[in-house]
Nucleic acid binder design. Structure first.
Lengths: 149, 149
DNA sequence: TCCATCTTCACTATATCAATCGACATTGTA
DNA sequence: TACAATGTCGATTGATATAGTGAAGATGGA
Protein backbone atom coordinates (compact mmCIF):
# COMPACT_ATOMS: atom_id res chain seq x y z
CA UNK A 1 0.00 0.00 0.00
CA UNK A 2 1.39 3.32 -1.06
CA UNK A 3 1.43 5.84 1.76
CA UNK A 4 1.27 9.53 0.85
CA UNK A 5 3.46 12.18 2.46
CA UNK A 6 0.40 13.66 4.07
CA UNK A 7 -0.27 10.36 5.73
CA UNK A 8 3.32 9.85 6.80
CA UNK A 9 3.33 13.29 8.34
CA UNK A 10 0.12 12.46 10.18
CA UNK A 11 1.69 9.33 11.61
CA UNK A 12 4.82 11.22 12.56
CA UNK A 13 2.81 13.87 14.34
CA UNK A 14 0.83 11.31 16.30
CA UNK A 15 4.02 9.50 17.13
CA UNK A 16 5.52 12.71 18.47
CA UNK A 17 2.43 13.35 20.57
CA UNK A 18 2.65 9.79 21.87
CA UNK A 19 6.13 10.57 23.15
CA UNK A 20 4.76 13.34 25.33
CA UNK A 21 4.42 11.82 28.78
CA UNK A 22 2.30 14.39 30.63
CA UNK A 23 -0.86 15.96 29.31
CA UNK A 24 0.96 19.07 28.10
CA UNK A 25 -0.19 20.22 24.68
CA UNK A 26 2.45 20.47 21.95
CA UNK A 27 2.50 23.38 19.55
CA UNK A 28 2.51 22.90 15.82
CA UNK A 29 5.98 24.25 15.32
CA UNK A 30 7.36 21.98 18.04
CA UNK A 31 5.98 18.92 16.32
CA UNK A 32 7.02 20.20 12.93
CA UNK A 33 10.54 20.83 14.12
CA UNK A 34 10.92 17.48 15.81
CA UNK A 35 9.62 15.47 12.89
CA UNK A 36 10.75 17.66 10.01
CA UNK A 37 7.31 18.40 8.65
CA UNK A 38 6.53 21.65 6.81
CA UNK A 39 4.67 23.59 9.56
CA UNK A 40 2.05 25.08 7.33
CA UNK A 41 1.21 21.69 5.93
CA UNK A 42 1.16 20.14 9.37
CA UNK A 43 -1.45 22.65 10.39
CA UNK A 44 -3.77 21.31 7.72
CA UNK A 45 -3.05 17.75 8.71
CA UNK A 46 -3.57 18.24 12.43
CA UNK A 47 -6.89 19.80 11.64
CA UNK A 48 -7.93 16.65 9.84
CA UNK A 49 -6.76 14.56 12.76
CA UNK A 50 -8.81 16.68 15.07
CA UNK A 51 -11.97 16.19 13.06
CA UNK A 52 -11.27 12.49 13.01
CA UNK A 53 -11.12 12.55 16.79
CA UNK A 54 -7.51 11.39 17.03
CA UNK A 55 -6.29 14.56 18.71
CA UNK A 56 -7.71 17.39 20.80
CA UNK A 57 -6.55 20.98 20.63
CA UNK A 58 -6.35 23.91 22.95
CA UNK A 59 -6.19 27.50 21.84
CA UNK A 60 -4.37 30.38 23.40
CA UNK A 61 -0.82 30.97 24.39
CA UNK A 62 -0.55 27.74 26.35
CA UNK A 63 -2.40 25.87 23.64
CA UNK A 64 -1.44 23.10 21.27
CA UNK A 65 -2.35 19.52 20.49
CA UNK A 66 -2.72 16.41 22.61
CA UNK A 67 -3.73 12.85 21.83
CA UNK A 68 -7.43 12.34 22.28
CA UNK A 69 -6.87 8.75 23.39
CA UNK A 70 -4.02 6.94 25.09
CA UNK A 71 -1.38 5.81 22.60
CA UNK A 72 -1.99 2.17 23.39
CA UNK A 73 -5.56 2.46 22.11
CA UNK A 74 -4.63 4.11 18.85
CA UNK A 75 -3.65 1.94 15.91
CA UNK A 76 -1.68 2.92 12.86
CA UNK A 77 -4.35 1.31 10.73
CA UNK A 78 -7.22 3.57 11.70
CA UNK A 79 -5.16 6.64 10.99
CA UNK A 80 -4.00 5.48 7.57
CA UNK A 81 -7.47 4.40 6.57
CA UNK A 82 -8.90 7.71 7.68
CA UNK A 83 -6.37 9.72 5.71
CA UNK A 84 -6.15 7.61 2.57
CA UNK A 85 -9.46 5.85 2.53
CA UNK A 86 -9.82 2.07 2.33
CA UNK A 87 -7.10 -0.13 0.88
CA UNK A 88 -7.27 -0.18 -2.89
CA UNK A 89 -9.23 -2.99 -4.55
CA UNK A 90 -8.75 -2.81 -8.31
CA UNK A 91 -11.23 -5.42 -9.52
CA UNK A 92 -14.44 -4.09 -8.00
CA UNK A 93 -13.36 -0.68 -9.19
CA UNK A 94 -12.78 -1.78 -12.75
CA UNK A 95 -16.01 -3.75 -12.87
CA UNK A 96 -17.97 -0.55 -12.41
CA UNK A 97 -16.45 0.91 -15.52
CA UNK A 98 -17.56 -2.13 -17.45
CA UNK A 99 -21.08 -1.86 -15.99
CA UNK A 100 -21.22 -5.24 -14.44
CA UNK A 101 -19.69 -7.17 -17.30
CA UNK A 102 -17.30 -9.69 -15.85
CA UNK A 103 -14.03 -10.86 -17.30
CA UNK A 104 -12.20 -14.13 -17.06
CA UNK A 105 -9.82 -13.48 -14.21
CA UNK A 106 -12.08 -11.34 -12.05
CA UNK A 107 -12.51 -14.05 -9.44
CA UNK A 108 -8.84 -14.84 -9.27
CA UNK A 109 -7.68 -11.26 -9.02
CA UNK A 110 -10.42 -10.39 -6.59
CA UNK A 111 -9.13 -13.05 -4.30
CA UNK A 112 -5.55 -11.96 -4.78
CA UNK A 113 -6.21 -8.33 -3.84
CA UNK A 114 -8.24 -9.44 -0.92
CA UNK A 115 -5.40 -11.52 0.39
CA UNK A 116 -3.02 -8.61 0.01
CA UNK A 117 -5.32 -6.19 1.73
CA UNK A 118 -5.89 -8.64 4.59
CA UNK A 119 -2.16 -9.07 4.99
CA UNK A 120 -1.61 -5.33 5.11
CA UNK A 121 -4.37 -4.50 7.52
CA UNK A 122 -3.29 -7.44 9.62
CA UNK A 123 -0.05 -5.61 10.20
CA UNK A 124 -1.19 -2.12 10.81
CA UNK A 125 -4.45 -2.74 12.61
CA UNK A 126 -2.35 -4.57 15.17
CA UNK A 127 0.24 -1.87 15.64
CA UNK A 128 -0.47 0.82 18.21
CA UNK A 129 1.44 4.03 18.74
CA UNK A 130 2.43 2.83 22.16
CA UNK A 131 4.18 -0.09 20.52
CA UNK A 132 5.93 2.19 18.07
CA UNK A 133 7.24 4.32 20.91
CA UNK A 134 8.32 1.29 22.87
CA UNK A 135 10.16 -0.17 19.91
CA UNK A 136 11.83 3.12 19.13
CA UNK A 137 13.06 3.52 22.68
CA UNK A 138 14.40 0.00 22.88
CA UNK A 139 16.19 0.35 19.57
CA UNK A 140 17.55 3.73 20.44
CA UNK A 141 19.04 2.64 23.72
CA UNK A 142 20.61 -0.41 22.14
CA UNK A 143 22.21 1.67 19.40
CA UNK A 144 23.45 4.16 21.99
CA UNK A 145 25.05 1.19 23.67
CA UNK A 146 26.82 0.30 20.47
CA UNK A 147 28.30 3.75 20.29
CA UNK A 148 29.48 3.49 23.88
CA UNK A 149 31.32 0.28 23.09
CA UNK B 1 0.22 -1.50 -2.05
CA UNK B 2 -1.28 0.60 -4.76
CA UNK B 3 -1.25 -1.15 -8.13
CA UNK B 4 -1.27 1.03 -11.24
CA UNK B 5 -3.48 0.37 -14.24
CA UNK B 6 -0.41 -0.38 -16.26
CA UNK B 7 0.45 -3.09 -13.80
CA UNK B 8 -3.05 -4.49 -13.65
CA UNK B 9 -3.12 -4.65 -17.43
CA UNK B 10 0.19 -6.45 -17.40
CA UNK B 11 -1.18 -9.03 -14.98
CA UNK B 12 -4.34 -9.40 -17.02
CA UNK B 13 -2.36 -9.95 -20.18
CA UNK B 14 -0.17 -12.59 -18.58
CA UNK B 15 -3.25 -14.22 -17.13
CA UNK B 16 -4.81 -14.35 -20.57
CA UNK B 17 -1.65 -15.87 -22.03
CA UNK B 18 -1.64 -18.41 -19.20
CA UNK B 19 -5.09 -19.52 -20.31
CA UNK B 20 -3.73 -20.37 -23.75
CA UNK B 21 -3.17 -24.11 -23.68
CA UNK B 22 -1.06 -24.73 -26.80
CA UNK B 23 1.97 -22.72 -27.81
CA UNK B 24 -0.01 -20.59 -30.24
CA UNK B 25 0.91 -16.93 -30.02
CA UNK B 26 -1.91 -14.51 -29.19
CA UNK B 27 -2.21 -11.22 -30.99
CA UNK B 28 -2.39 -7.95 -29.12
CA UNK B 29 -5.95 -7.21 -30.12
CA UNK B 30 -7.08 -10.66 -28.99
CA UNK B 31 -5.64 -10.12 -25.55
CA UNK B 32 -6.91 -6.56 -25.44
CA UNK B 33 -10.40 -7.68 -26.39
CA UNK B 34 -10.53 -10.52 -23.91
CA UNK B 35 -9.30 -8.47 -20.97
CA UNK B 36 -10.67 -5.05 -21.92
CA UNK B 37 -7.32 -3.32 -22.18
CA UNK B 38 -6.76 -0.36 -24.53
CA UNK B 39 -4.91 -2.07 -27.40
CA UNK B 40 -2.43 0.67 -28.02
CA UNK B 41 -1.50 0.82 -24.36
CA UNK B 42 -1.23 -2.94 -24.18
CA UNK B 43 1.30 -2.76 -26.98
CA UNK B 44 3.60 -0.68 -24.76
CA UNK B 45 3.06 -2.97 -21.82
CA UNK B 46 3.72 -6.19 -23.70
CA UNK B 47 6.92 -4.62 -24.89
CA UNK B 48 8.02 -4.08 -21.32
CA UNK B 49 7.07 -7.62 -20.44
CA UNK B 50 9.14 -8.85 -23.31
CA UNK B 51 12.21 -6.98 -22.18
CA UNK B 52 11.68 -8.35 -18.72
CA UNK B 53 11.71 -11.85 -20.19
CA UNK B 54 8.18 -12.71 -19.14
CA UNK B 55 6.90 -13.16 -22.68
CA UNK B 56 8.30 -13.94 -26.08
CA UNK B 57 7.00 -12.52 -29.31
CA UNK B 58 6.86 -13.55 -32.92
CA UNK B 59 6.55 -11.09 -35.73
CA UNK B 60 4.81 -11.48 -39.01
CA UNK B 61 1.29 -12.40 -39.91
CA UNK B 62 1.22 -15.47 -37.69
CA UNK B 63 2.92 -13.56 -34.92
CA UNK B 64 1.87 -12.59 -31.44
CA UNK B 65 2.89 -13.17 -27.85
CA UNK B 66 3.46 -16.27 -25.76
CA UNK B 67 4.58 -16.83 -22.19
CA UNK B 68 8.32 -17.21 -21.96
CA UNK B 69 7.98 -19.62 -19.05
CA UNK B 70 5.29 -22.04 -17.91
CA UNK B 71 2.60 -20.30 -15.87
CA UNK B 72 3.41 -22.34 -12.81
CA UNK B 73 6.89 -20.83 -12.70
CA UNK B 74 5.73 -17.25 -12.99
CA UNK B 75 4.71 -15.39 -9.86
CA UNK B 76 2.54 -12.32 -9.59
CA UNK B 77 5.20 -10.76 -7.37
CA UNK B 78 8.00 -10.64 -9.89
CA UNK B 79 5.76 -9.00 -12.44
CA UNK B 80 4.50 -6.32 -10.08
CA UNK B 81 7.95 -5.56 -8.79
CA UNK B 82 9.28 -5.29 -12.31
CA UNK B 83 6.57 -2.89 -13.41
CA UNK B 84 6.28 -0.76 -10.30
CA UNK B 85 9.70 -1.14 -8.78
CA UNK B 86 10.23 -2.35 -5.23
CA UNK B 87 7.56 -1.98 -2.58
CA UNK B 88 7.54 1.53 -1.21
CA UNK B 89 9.62 2.22 1.90
CA UNK B 90 9.06 5.78 3.06
CA UNK B 91 11.66 6.07 5.81
CA UNK B 92 14.81 5.27 3.86
CA UNK B 93 13.50 7.54 1.16
CA UNK B 94 12.92 10.44 3.51
CA UNK B 95 16.26 9.98 5.25
CA UNK B 96 18.02 10.81 1.98
CA UNK B 97 16.33 14.16 1.83
CA UNK B 98 17.56 14.90 5.31
CA UNK B 99 21.08 13.78 4.32
CA UNK B 100 21.46 11.11 6.88
CA UNK B 101 19.99 12.99 9.81
CA UNK B 102 17.81 10.62 11.76
CA UNK B 103 14.59 11.38 13.54
CA UNK B 104 12.98 9.92 16.59
CA UNK B 105 10.61 7.41 15.06
CA UNK B 106 12.80 6.27 12.18
CA UNK B 107 13.47 2.88 13.72
CA UNK B 108 9.86 2.26 14.58
CA UNK B 109 8.48 3.27 11.21
CA UNK B 110 11.25 1.47 9.39
CA UNK B 111 10.18 -1.70 11.11
CA UNK B 112 6.52 -1.02 10.43
CA UNK B 113 6.99 -0.57 6.70
CA UNK B 114 9.18 -3.58 6.59
CA UNK B 115 6.49 -5.70 8.19
CA UNK B 116 3.96 -4.42 5.70
CA UNK B 117 6.17 -5.06 2.75
CA UNK B 118 6.97 -8.55 3.99
CA UNK B 119 3.29 -9.28 4.40
CA UNK B 120 2.55 -8.10 0.89
CA UNK B 121 5.37 -9.89 -0.85
CA UNK B 122 4.50 -12.97 1.19
CA UNK B 123 1.21 -13.03 -0.64
CA UNK B 124 2.20 -12.27 -4.15
CA UNK B 125 5.56 -13.98 -4.33
CA UNK B 126 3.69 -17.14 -3.49
CA UNK B 127 1.01 -16.76 -6.11
CA UNK B 128 1.69 -18.13 -9.57
CA UNK B 129 -0.32 -17.55 -12.70
CA UNK B 130 -1.08 -21.24 -12.83
CA UNK B 131 -2.78 -20.88 -9.45
CA UNK B 132 -4.76 -17.88 -10.62
CA UNK B 133 -6.02 -19.82 -13.61
CA UNK B 134 -6.85 -22.82 -11.50
CA UNK B 135 -8.77 -20.72 -8.98
CA UNK B 136 -10.62 -18.88 -11.71
CA UNK B 137 -11.71 -22.10 -13.35
CA UNK B 138 -12.85 -23.68 -10.12
CA UNK B 139 -14.81 -20.59 -9.17
CA UNK B 140 -16.29 -20.24 -12.59
CA UNK B 141 -17.57 -23.77 -12.75
CA UNK B 142 -19.04 -23.56 -9.28
CA UNK B 143 -20.86 -20.34 -10.12
CA UNK B 144 -22.14 -21.93 -13.33
CA UNK B 145 -23.46 -24.70 -11.15
CA UNK B 146 -25.36 -22.22 -9.04
CA UNK B 147 -27.06 -20.89 -12.12
CA UNK B 148 -28.07 -24.41 -13.13
CA UNK B 149 -29.71 -25.03 -9.76
C1' DT C 1 -3.72 42.28 24.70
C1' DC C 2 -0.69 38.85 23.01
C1' DC C 3 -0.34 34.18 21.28
C1' DA C 4 -1.61 30.27 18.95
C1' DT C 5 -5.16 27.68 17.09
C1' DC C 6 -9.21 27.55 13.73
C1' DT C 7 -11.38 28.30 9.27
C1' DT C 8 -11.52 29.07 4.55
C1' DC C 9 -10.41 29.70 -0.16
C1' DA C 10 -7.21 29.87 -3.53
C1' DC C 11 -3.22 28.99 -6.01
C1' DT C 12 1.09 26.86 -8.05
C1' DA C 13 4.20 23.62 -8.93
C1' DT C 14 5.42 18.83 -9.76
C1' DA C 15 5.00 14.16 -10.68
C1' DT C 16 2.82 10.22 -12.15
C1' DC C 17 -0.22 7.83 -14.93
C1' DA C 18 -3.09 6.60 -18.85
C1' DA C 19 -3.42 6.63 -23.35
C1' DT C 20 -2.39 7.79 -28.13
C1' DC C 21 0.37 9.02 -32.45
C1' DG C 22 3.41 8.27 -36.07
C1' DA C 23 7.19 6.29 -38.21
C1' DC C 24 9.86 2.21 -38.73
C1' DA C 25 11.42 -2.80 -38.73
C1' DT C 26 10.44 -7.60 -39.32
C1' DT C 27 8.33 -11.69 -40.90
C1' DG C 28 5.22 -15.01 -43.41
C1' DT C 29 3.07 -15.70 -47.54
C1' DA C 30 1.45 -15.11 -52.29
C1' DT D 1 10.10 -9.74 -54.75
C1' DA D 2 6.31 -7.29 -52.97
C1' DC D 3 2.52 -6.96 -49.91
C1' DA D 4 0.18 -7.05 -45.66
C1' DA D 5 0.05 -8.00 -40.97
C1' DT D 6 2.32 -7.41 -36.96
C1' DG D 7 5.72 -6.08 -33.54
C1' DT D 8 9.17 -2.10 -32.04
C1' DC D 9 10.14 2.34 -30.39
C1' DG D 10 10.25 7.19 -29.00
C1' DA D 11 7.63 11.20 -28.32
C1' DT D 12 3.65 13.54 -26.88
C1' DT D 13 -0.71 14.68 -24.89
C1' DG D 14 -4.14 15.10 -21.27
C1' DA D 15 -5.91 14.05 -16.84
C1' DT D 16 -5.47 13.57 -12.06
C1' DA D 17 -3.45 13.55 -7.55
C1' DT D 18 -0.16 15.25 -4.43
C1' DA D 19 2.71 18.56 -1.97
C1' DG D 20 3.15 22.70 -0.30
C1' DT D 21 2.25 27.97 0.10
C1' DG D 22 -0.23 32.37 0.78
C1' DA D 23 -3.32 35.40 2.79
C1' DA D 24 -7.11 36.90 5.61
C1' DG D 25 -9.74 36.92 9.40
C1' DA D 26 -12.16 34.64 13.65
C1' DT D 27 -11.87 32.43 18.14
C1' DG D 28 -10.49 31.70 22.64
C1' DG D 29 -7.13 31.17 26.71
C1' DA D 30 -3.41 33.17 29.86
Amino acid sequence: MRVSKRCQYALRALFELSLQPDGRPMKIHQIAGAQKVPPRFLEVILNELKHAGFVDSRRGSEGGYVLARPAKDLTVGEVIEYIQGPIYTPVADAAKHRNGESLLGDYAFQQLWRKVSDAVSGVWDNTTFAELVEYEMAKKSSSALNYAI
